[in-house]
Each structure stands twice: as C-alpha cells, then as structure tokens.
Computed example of a mutant assay.
Amino acid sequence: MNKDERRQLREALRIAGAALDQADVPFALAGGYAAWVHGAPESDHDVDFAILEQDVDRAKEALAATTLDVEQPVENWLFKAYNAEALVDVIFRVAGEAVTPELLARAERVDVLGVSMPVLGSTDVVASKLLVLTEHRCDFSNLLPVVRALREQVDWPQVAARTAENPYAQAFLFLLGRLGIVGADPAVPSLGSHEAEPPDPRRGGIPVIEAE
C-alpha cells in the first residue's frame, strides 16, 4: 500500500467515525483498525465499523451525507462506503450473528487519528476474527501478527468458549498453544492430544496450552 492509499484509508476511517458519532448511531470501530488501536500492525485492507441492524438506514444516511460513496452489496450482513478506492465496511452481523448492544457497550472511547470514537476491545476483536474463519477463508498468516501483538490483552478462555463451534477457530487456538503465544489456563478447552511443552525463553517464557 502506497502513501496515498494509506492516507485515503485513514481519512475514510476519520470521516465515517465522525459521521456516525455525530448522528448518534451506536457503533464501534472493529476489525483490523481496532486491533491497530490496541497495538497490532496497521490494516492495509479496509476499515470496519460495527453497528446494530436496526440502525442500518440511519448509518447509511449519515455516511451518504459525507464525501463517502455508499453502496449496498449483495451480502446481507453489511454495507460499504468508499473514499476513492479506500473501503469502509459497516457490519451488522458477524458469522451470521447480529451485532448486539452488549458488544457495542463493551467498546471504549478512544482518540483515533484525532477523532474520538468507541473501539472494540482486544477480546472482541480477536473473537470476531476467529468466528469468520471458514474453509474458504482460513489464512492464519494474517491473524498471527494480530494475536502476537494483542495476546496479553485478550481473555483467551472467553475467546475459546465463544468460538467452540468453529473448528477452524479451534485449530488456530491449538496452533497458538503450540507456538507458545497462548499460556496454559485450565479454563481453555483442550484443543488437541499433544503434551504441553516447557516455556520457551525466546518467546518470553510463556508456556503453551496444556492439552489432555
């Protein structure tokens, strides 16, 4: 991504966040840029915002009143807004489940690129990223830098419980254990048949998940 593309993406974030906030639409910055706020590498793909399904029309109206171009794709879980080529996804369902008021209530207001806005916490960001893993969308290489950066901020037992029905998410959690990214915790479900490994000093001495 070149400097102009990065500038357009950041500007899209600022415009959309400010517009939703001024319109009093409940929302939160989500996805890669929420992870970036918490210390992960900056996204080079798009900006994600989470809203309630009941607020879709108001959110569209708020963004359409800005310089962003609003579009409704065929997918029935989001709509899109563009700042030139920079994409904003406004999401109201994640992995088939509706965004809830409780999810948005857990977001914390943060200054992001000069605009105050609610941002999802690290646990919710990671859980949402794992929930959308499927047979056709299962690139762990994009997730690893994110979880390495956020690992100490994440409630891993909660992530494991929330993603228990997704075998691709569970496989990723097992991989995190084998890599020493996730520490041993009896509240985390057993994710495999391997014996626990000792702490690796190259990884800060963090042990892997203990498995039965």
Rank of each mutant, 00 (worst) to 15 (best):
R162Q: 05
Q170F: 07
V99F: 04
L13Q: 10
Q54V: 15
A84D: 01
E75N: 14
D57N: 13
L133M: 08
G204D: 12
F140V: 11
R7H: 05
D185W: 03
T163D: 04
D55K: 07
H45R: 12
A40S: 08
H38R: 04
K80P: 02
S128A: 06
A107H: 07
P101E: 13
D155P: 07
G204T: 00
S122V: 01
A12Q: 09
A64Q: 07
R203W: 10
E85V: 03
P201H: 07
L29T: 10
F92R: 06
S193A: 11
E42I: 08
V159A: 03
I206E: 12
R58I: 04
F49T: 12
L175M: 09
F172M: 03
V112C: 08
V70W: 06
G121C: 00
L130N: 00
L9R: 15
V119K: 14
Q54R: 15
H45D: 11
Q22M: 13
L191Y: 11
G192I: 05
L131W: 00
D24N: 15
D46P: 03
L191R: 09
D111T: 13
A65S: 15
K129R: 07
R148Q: 15
L173G: 05
A169M: 09
G114T: 04
V126S: 01
K129C: 00
P167E: 10
A28M: 06
G96A: 11
L143K: 03
T67H: 07
V188N: 04
E195W: 02
P199G: 13
E135K: 15
H136F: 13
D124Y: 02
A107I: 09
Y168A: 09
V147I: 11
E85D: 11
L150F: 07
C138S: 11
H45T: 10
A164P: 04
P41T: 11
G192E: 14
G177H: 12
V159M: 00
T66N: 05
R106Y: 08
L120A: 14
L104N: 02
P157T: 08
R148V: 08
P167R: 02
Y168T: 10
R6D: 03
P207D: 01
G31K: 00
V25Y: 06
E197L: 13
E71F: 04
R202L: 14
V188H: 08
A16Y: 01
H194A: 14
S122P: 15
S43Y: 01
A107C: 04
L52C: 13
V47P: 05
A30Q: 09
E5S: 01
S193K: 12
A211E: 03
L104W: 05
P26Q: 14
A23D: 05
H45Y: 10
D111K: 13
L103E: 15
R106L: 11
N83E: 13
T123A: 00
D24K: 13
E152T: 14
A127E: 07
A86Y: 02
Q153R: 00
L52T: 13
V70K: 11
S116N: 03
V146A: 03
I91G: 02
P157I: 08
Q170M: 07
L29F: 10
R178T: 14
A35K: 01
G205L: 13
D46Q: 01
K129M: 06
M1P: 06
N2Y: 01
V74T: 14
